[in-house]
Every structure is written in C-alpha cells, then in structure tokens.
Design a protein around this nucleic acid. Structure first.
Lengths: 204, 204
DNA sequence: GTCTATATGGAGATAGAC
DNA sequence: GTCTATCTCCATATAGAC
C-alpha cells in the first residue's frame, strides 16, 4: 500500500482524464479505454488503480457535487447583509464555473431522478440550518420594506438559475445569441451583472 | 409502403417510449430492449420500424429541438411591445416545459459540444432575422429611457435561464429548496413571476 | 408484420508474464 | 507496477420461419 511519486502522479493523471471524459460524455457514454488513453496508460493499469468504472465515477461525481453544494452552503450560512450575500454567491459560482464550466450539465444529468447522493451531502455540508436562516433573513427584508415580496426559495432559485444556466447552455447560446462573441470574457463580467440584475429586481 | 392502423399505432407507441427512455437516460444510456418493452413490442420489430438506434434517436432529438427553438424564434420575430413579449416567451416556455419537463436537460446533454444540428434548425426557423429585430428593439428601449442599459443577448439569456433552469434542476431543487412543496403548482404560477422579475429589474 | 434465434462487435474486467 | 492477451457479457442488429 505504499505509494511512490510515480503512482501518485498516475492516480492524478487518471482523475484528470476521468473528469474530462465523464463530464463530456456522462457515465454511460464514457469509455475506460478513452480515459486510459487520456491518462497516458493502458486499460489494465487503469483497472489496477481504480477497481471499476463505477468506483472511479463515484469519486469524480462526489468531487463535482461538492464544488456545487459547498458554495451554496456557505451562502446560506453567511451572516452578511442580504445584497452582499447575493453578490458573493454570484461571484463564487462564476469563479467555480469559469474553471469547471461543465459542472452544471454533468451533475444535472447524472443525478437524473435519484437525488439520494445530494441528500446525504446536504447534511454533511449543513445546508439545512443555513437554509432556514437565509429564508428568515429574506422574510425579514420583505417585512421591513427593504425588498419586494418574493418566495424565498424562488429568489434563491433565480440567483442560481442566472448563474448556472448560461454555462450549461454555452454551446447553443454561442450559436443562437453570441455569434462571434468571446464568452469567456462575457462570463467574467457577468458575475456582478447577475447580482445587479437580481438586486434591481427585488429592491424597493 | 402502405400503413395500416395497427402499424401506425405501433410507430406512435415506439416514439412515445423512445421519448421517455432517451430523455431519461440519454443516447448512450438508453437500451433498445427497454424501448421495445415500453412500446409493447419486441426488439426485432423495433428495428423493423426504425432501422437503427441512431435513426430513432435523431428523430426524437429533432422533435425535442423544435419544441425549444420554435418558441424562441416566435419570440424574436414578434412585433409586440417589449414587456409583453417577455411575458409571452416566459408563458410559452413554462407551458411547454410543464408538459415536457425533461427537454432542457435532454437537449443540453446530447448537444454536448457539437451545435451543428442547432445551427441548421436556426436557419429553418428564421431565428437570425428575428434576432436582429429584437436586439434593435431592446437597444431602442434603452435609448428612449424605457429600460436600463443591458446587453440585449444577455437580457434574453436571463429570461431563458429563469424559465428553463428550474426544470433542469428540479430533482435537486426539490431536495435543496422545495422540500414538501408541490413543484408542479409552483411552476404554473412561475411563468408570470419570472416575467415580473425580469421587467422589474430592467424598467426605469 | 411479427416472432425466435443468432451473428457480431464492443466494453468492462481479469490472468498472468515480466 | 506495467504490459499483452483474453474472458465474458451485453447491446445492436439481422436471418429466417411463420
């Protein structure tokens, strides 16, 4: 069970390749052969390091899930003022998704109709407690006349929709709406624009 | 090549089953056996009606693409006043997605990085001409002080994000934000709320 | 048109030499 | 740890009887 430098590097190469392939083609469409090729090893060795396709996938998927759920948990648990929180979550999600643009599609697809893995991670990350706190914060902002009436979960869903969907729809959006535009640049500036768009909509 | 009532029904059963299975599992994850079972026929007969998995999939996928692209084309070509157009597109997309909630995920996944099929359909549906018209309309609304400055394609992207992402993320959103809530009901009321949210954000 | 049986290829996984 | 060769299963697709 000792790990030398070489084998650690091999493991990391495999994970990097697996992230790429699984994200691009999904579990069913991914091929162990292609992952091995991308990692610069052969199939047998791939199976030597990661017993099965299932096991390898599960690791990649959990990793991806954490990248999405953890920022949300932080947002919900944050004690800052509401508008500042909105700026924060938009910025963090844009940062993460500029680095890993495939995350929304990957997760939404592979979760399909079974959200059990999400459920478990939610508890681990403490989403539940933070959620109640932020719901209450939004309700108080409405009661005090700071923002217009809106259902708290829908406000949060709106922020997440505006932050994630453009990444999920990037190839099609490029053709349909952003022909010739550098979407990487667009996304960089979009974080604050999404926050502005939301705040403008709810503030009185 | 004559088609009797029975075979037409068989064809329709197959398409209905294929829509279900392809949408739920994607091209790679779908099994011809499962489609045949769902259609109440056997595998050989399935191949008799639709030569190959590829051919069957292509038909289902085109169908799905049209359901998404056509409303967008109508929106872009519409001569109505801007705020009314925003209400219209939100309503139409919510109607379509309440009936076919799986469309966003299905299309976004299967298109992956190759948008060539979308490109072709765009021309057929006349998206290009409508797009320029609506971009101009938005720019004029900004120039005349009716709405705040915003990049026209981003405004449209925002509307579509708010309309589609909640459907794509439904299973995970249910767990995370809408525990115990009837999301079908929520979606019915959401069409106008999305339009209000957008209009509230841009109007002066 | 509809079925059973089967051909064919591909993908995950392992055996076993080095 | 790393490789080549191979096993096994499963999915698409077809042959051919009825």
């Amino acid at each position: 069970m000792k790990e030398n430098k070489k084998s650690l590097e091999a493991r990391e190469n495999i994970l990097a390749a697996a992230r790429l392939i699984f994200a691009a083609k999904g579990y069913a469409g991914a091929r162990m052969q292609e992952i091995a090729d991308n990692a610069g090893i052969n199939k047998a060795l791939l199976h030597y390091y990661y017993k099965s396709k299932d096991k390898l996938f599960e690791q990649i998927f959990q990793e991806a899930l954490v990248k999405i759920i953890r920022p949300l948990a932080s947002f919900l648990a944050d004690d800052s003022e509401l508008f500042q929180k909105i700026r924060n979550i938009s910025r963090i999600y844009h940062e993460v998704l500029i680095e890993y643009p495939f995350l929304p599609n990957f997760i939404l697809n592979e979760i399909s109709t079974d959200p059990s893995r999400v459920l478990h991670l939610m508890n681990v990350e403490g989403v539940l407690v933070g959620r109640e706190k932020t719901f209450k914060q939004i309700e108080e902002a409405i009661a005090s006349g700071k923002i217009r009436p809106i259902n708290p979960p829908e406000l949060i869903l709106n922020i997440i929709s505006l932050s994630m969907f453009p990444f999920a729809s990037r190839p099609i959006a490029q053709e349909l709406m952003f022909k010739g535009v550098d979407m990487d640049e667009m996304f960089k500036e979009r974080a604050d624009q999404v926050a502005d768009f939301v705040i403008q909509s709810i503030k009185i």
